[in-house]
Design a protein around this nucleic acid. Structure first.
Lengths: 132, 132
DNA sequence: ATAATATATGAATATATATTCAGATGTCAA
DNA sequence: TTGACATCTGAATATATATTCATATATTAT
């Protein structure tokens, strides 16, 4: 996952004209269709960033709590048994992609879910894993 | 993301009894409910593994092609402009969590989507990013 | 058999990530 | 204003990951 920065891994260029090697096993016709279906590389990057954000157990645990109510950093940290610093860092990354919002009250900062959309993904995967 | 191995990062223990610090801002009542909502740590791991698998642009691009038809490694590599070795490695990780299946035919190995479930997630995120 | 092709694999490398630690900042209470 | 608290931040560290490269394996064609 990469966020808040541009990737440093060199992105592969899209193959120029003939998309498949000389040894290609699919007919050239199909090969051209393939390129149409192929996920655009920049969109792939953004989608990967999003999925990657959900690809961490501690972030998921944090989200599972914020799904129901807002919580301040300290309580969140206590509940998930992480250091406050670690939680703060994670909240920052969650904020960076607008999954969470915050509200300041005195010296506390209360975080809450901004994009409830993710709960559907969360549920879908949770159930999916239960099946298999 | 971690797959095919146990995580080496030490998993934080769940806080024993009083889940929140002495400075806790939420009432103890709520604190107990929190623990009920908190995603179980092992399930969190498995979900994170799954999401993490989708958290790579090249894997998404590979999946975007396999969504429609089976393809052999060489064609796949040509289409996404990656080395065959890199594609092979990625397919292995996709196989490890049973997102793809393969079928051998002569010296070719044709891969195809095993779990079409993921296409829904894929679509959901694709559309979600289009909105914002 | 031998060579050519298709794929897989392991080690090495480069990069990315999560956490910790020390300390900075901002807020409240005495 | 001093000290305690809540959160944030950046650098350092440990770990995880993707790719490449060299090589192994398996299949087909000559």
């Amino acid at each position: 996952m990469r966020f808040m920065e541009q990737p440093r891994h060199p992105l592969p260029e899209l193959a120029a004209d003939p998309i498949c090697a000389p040894t290609c096993t699919i007919p050239l016709q199909q090969a051209k269709q393939l390129q149409g279906r192929l996920l655009d590389i920049h969109k792939a990057q953004r989608m990967a960033e999003f999925f990657g954000l959900l690809g961490d157990a501690n972030r998921l645990r944090i989200l599972s709590l914020l799904a129901e109510q807002e919580l301040c950093v300290g309580d969140l940290a206590a509940a998930v048994a992480m250091s406050e610093s670690a939680v703060s860092h994670q909240l920052r990354t969650l904020k960076s992609i607008r999954l969470v919002q915050y509200r300041k009250q005195g010296r506390h900062v209360f975080y809450r879910l901004q994009d409830h959309h993710v709960l559907e993904l969360y549920q879908a995967v949770a159930e999916h894993l239960d099946e298999s």
